[in-house]
Amino acid sequence: MNVAPKAKLNCEEVKGSPVYIGKAEGRAIVAHSIEEACYIKPGDILITFGTDVGWSPYFPMLSGIATEVGGLISHGAVIAREYGLPCIIGATNATQIFKTGDRIVLDSEKGIIYKVVSD
């Protein structure tokens, strides 16, 4: 009988402030600029420095958002609540810690993002 490997936590974890409570697991898309948004695929979790109105067309495709800056009324936070997307702000250095393609969990109830690896 084949059993799928269980996922385990890697030590790569970033904490932030929850904006909209929820949990998402998926592929990280680390975008340092709006020009990199073209790589977003449905279900991705966006990790970026911050968002503005130019990012709006991509929000319906995402399953979660993490920004390094922003407050409860920042663009990313407001739009995340509007779309019901799990969101964390103040995720310091997240764009340096994670890479596009990493399998991650964004748990905004706990205010963390972490990488998932297989055995």
Rank of each mutant, 00 (worst) to 15 (best):
P60A: 05
P57Q: 08
G54N: 10
T67C: 14
Y39M: 10
P57K: 04
M61W: 06
K23I: 15
P42M: 12
L62F: 07
A24D: 07
V53G: 03
H32Y: 11
P18H: 07
V53C: 05
S17R: 12
S33H: 11
V30A: 03
G70E: 03
F49K: 10
G26S: 03
V19Q: 09
A28G: 02
E36Q: 12
P42I: 05
A37T: 12
P42N: 10
M61A: 08
I34W: 15
F59K: 01
A24C: 03
G16S: 05
G64M: 03
Y20D: 13
Y20M: 13
G70V: 01
G70P: 01
I29M: 13
K23L: 14
E68Y: 07
P18R: 08
M61E: 12
I45V: 08
I40K: 09
L46E: 00
I34D: 12
Y39I: 06
L62W: 02
I47A: 00
E36A: 12
I65L: 15
E36W: 01
A31V: 00
P60T: 08
L46G: 03
I40L: 13
G16P: 09
G22T: 06
A37I: 11
T67K: 05
G54T: 03
K41P: 02
C38I: 09
F49H: 14
I65P: 01
A31M: 00
V53W: 05
T51I: 02
